[in-house]
């Protein structure tokens, strides 16, 4: 169907509106992070751009300055209060370790498990697949108590390794199923051609099939990373001194009030690693999502 001039314009406008709708909260959050407390809580209405931008919120969360220090430095003592537990540098490091670790472990296990499930015929294969799928139905809250006890006995409570393991367990089913669908898109003839060419199973996997599903690996990794990066419930129950980002942010809601400026600053900062990660795998990601067009 040929689009008329106005249909085209209308579509462009719709696209801009949708993107705007999704981007607005991010924009507002980022904007808030640069506002002084007085602009965040203005009794006369919403402050858009009519404020003096400040990096105080970042100085507190990212540089570990206490608000008292900053207040004395600037000579403005409005709204001083709370201790200096807003330093989030360790939190970001911990979150990165947990997210990268669990993503790497999940992808490593999933690419191998999914290859076997896609290519090999063994007894109980379908039942096994159904079982994997059923793991996805399970809400984490349902297993949290036994997990806490198990982790306690294994001394994994309040460790980064513990979080890596638990995030991997939660991510693994969806990662395996996703990777399997990417492998299924590669015709089995390719494996057979490589087999006739003289490759062993391992060589077929490493040199032929895995490179052909690179895009799928990227997509799976992004999914796992984002899940792990934003995972809240399990981290909350399984850690005490180690704080991942979502848990840390909740501590900014205190008995004396919510520190919106710090929340916004940390929230804005938290977007950056995912953004960089997706940027890194973007090329593969697009290929992964359009893998179908490579087949024929």
């Amino acid at each position: 169907m040929q689009e008329t001039f106005w249909q085209k314009r209308l579509r462009d406008v719709a696209a801009v509106l949708v993107v705007g709708l999704f981007m607005f909260p991010l924009f507002w959050w980022a904007l808030t992070s640069f506002k002084p407390t007085s602009a965040i809580f203005d009794k006369d209405g919403i402050v858009w751009f009519d404020f003096k931008p400040t990096l105080v919120n970042y100085a507190v969360t990212m540089l570990g300055k206490s608000r008292a220090e900053l207040a004395i430095e600037s000579g403005n003592t409005f709204g001083i209060g709370g201790a200096s537990s807003y330093d989030s540098r360790q939190t970001i490091i911990d979150s990165l370790i947990v997210a990268v670790g669990s993503t790497a472990l999940t992808v490593l296990l999933a690419v191998m498990a999914a290859y076997a499930l896609s290519r090999m015929r063994f007894f109980g294969r379908q039942a096994y697949l159904n079982w994997i799928l059923s793991q996805r139905f399970m809400p984490p809250i349902a297993i949290i108590v036994p997990v806490v006890f198990m982790f306690h006995y294994m001394s994994l409570l309040d460790t980064r390794l513990g979080l890596v393991i638990v995030d991997t367990l939660i991510n693994l089913p969806i990662a395996v199923l996703l990777m399997k669908s990417f492998y299924d898109d590669v015709p089995a003839d390719v494996d057979e051609a490589a087999m006739i060419d003289g490759a062993t199973r391992l060589q077929i996997f490493r040199r032929v099939v895995l490179p052909m599903v690179k895009g799928g690996v990227a997509a799976t990794a992004v999914l796992c990373f984002i899940f792990s990066w934003t995972e809240f419930l399990l981290s909350l129950f399984l850690t005490n001194s180690i704080r991942t980002l979502p848990v840390k942010i909740t501590t900014f809601v205190t008995s004396t009030g919510s520190e919106w400026g710090f929340i916004a600053a940390l929230g804005t900062t938290a977007v950056i690693p995912s953004f960089i990660f997706i940027l890194l795998v973007q090329k593969q990601l697009v290929r992964g999502l359009t893998l179908g067009s490579l087949k024929e």
């Binding site: 015709p187 003839d189 390719v190 057979e192 051609a193 490589a194 032929v208 490179p211 052909m212 690179k214 490579l294 024929e296």
Partner: peptide, 9 residues
């Protein structure tokens, strides 16, 4: 093979 089975990468 019918679908060529080339190594796409």
């Amino acid at each position: 093979f019918q679908n060529y089975a080339l190594y796409a990468h």
